[in-house]
Amino acid sequence: MNPAQGGWVILLTVVLAMLASIVHLPESWPAWLGWWRPVWVPLVLFFWVVEVPHRVGLIAAWIVGLALDVLVADPLGINGALLACLTFFTWRFYERLRMFAVLQQGLLLLVLLSVYELLRSLVLAWVRGDAFSWAVLLGPLFSAFLWPFVYMFLQRLRTGFRVA
């Protein structure tokens, strides 16, 4: 069997995740809804690292982060560093994480993504002087809630296209 199969599926889902993180709501909707935006890219990356750890590299994760920096107008390098850290952590424990139930994974994601967002907004506050707000934790909360659905969807894609 071709060892490097379905790389384009991984790429496509990551690109879709990036797309989902820049699509904006209609202007007539209240602005605070923006705080609930799930952190799509780390979510999708987490799935692929747990399922096919040999297909997602640190450098690839970092480059995805760089593109995300430009897309969401963050300082260059910040998302890259955080995504690389996330990938590294998930790599360390992927065998154990695969044994987790989906809900357990969701809880773990809540913690991981909260740390991700907190670090991000702390760095932003430090580098750019952005106001820090605890509302950044709403995104991870909603992401963890969505995790079972994302997991089912991506798992179906993975088996359907035989990504290995």
Partner: peptide
């Protein structure tokens, strides 16, 4: 590798903020 990437990132951050 992770350390190298973190160093590149922090270099980018400092370069861009200054």
């Amino acid at each position: 590798m992770l350390l190298a990437l973190l160093m590149v990132s922090s270099a980018l951050l400092t370069l861009e903020s200054t």
